[in-house]
C-alpha cells in the first residue's frame, strides 16, 4: 500500500470526519436516529479503514490489542454498573430515575451512560474481530 497516494490522502481526510460522525451519532442518539450500536460500528469502521489503508501493524500501534480487549469488557461493565448503581441508590436494577434528584435528569444520565457502554463494547468487538481475521490471513 506504499503507492496508493490518493487512497492514503483521502483516508487521512475522511477518518477524522468518520470519528466525529460516530461521536455525533453516539451522543445525539437521544434526539435523532442513532445510538450506541450504530456509533460503535461507525467508530470501528474508521479504524478498520485505517488498518486496510496503512497496514495492520500501524493500526495495532494506534489501538493496542490490550486496550481493545479492555474495551470489550469495559462497555458491558459500564452498562451493568449503571444498573448496580441504581440498585445501590434505592431503585430497581436499571431504573435510571434515582441517578439524579430529578427523575428526568436521572433517566437522561442513565441512557447516556448505557449507550456509551454499548458503543464501547460494539466498537471494541468489531475492531477485535477484524484485527483477528486480518492477522490470520498473513
Amino acid at each position: 500500500m506504499r503507492h496508493h497516494i490518493v487512497l492514503r490522502v483521502v483516508a487521512k481526510l475522511l477518518i477524522p470526519l468518520i470519528l466525529l460522525f460516530a461521536l455525533y451519532v453516539q451522543f445525539h442518539g437521544d434526539y435523532g436516529p442513532g445510538g450506541g450500536f450504530q456509533a460503535g460500528v461507525i467508530f470501528a469502521a474508521a479504524f478498520i479503514l485505517y488498518a486496510i489503508i496503512f497496514g495492520l501493524e500501524s493500526a495495532r500501534l494506534v489501538v493496542p490489542p490490550t486496550i481493545i480487549r479492555a474495551g470489550v469488557a469495559l462497555g458491558v461493565l459500564l452498562y451493568a454498573g449503571v444498573g448496580v448503581a441504581s440498585l445501590l441508590l434505592g431503585g430497581t436494577f436499571l431504573d435510571y430515575s434515582v441517578l439524579a434528584h430529578d427523575p428526568l435528569h436521572g433517566q437522561h444520565y442513565g441512557i447516556l451512560l448505557v449507550e456509551l457502554g454499548v458503543g464501547i463494547t460494539v466498537a471494541s468487538v468489531m475492531i477485535a474481530i477484524f484485527f483477528t481475521f486480518a492477522g490470520r490471513s498473513r
Binding site: G29, D30, Y31, G32, P33, G35, L94, I111, E115
Partner: peptide
C-alpha cells in the same frame, strides 16, 4: 427524550 426509539431501547 424526543427519540422514542432510544427511550424504549435503553430504558
Amino acid at each position: 427524550l424526543p427519540n422514542v426509539v432510544t427511550s424504549v431501547l435503553a430504558s
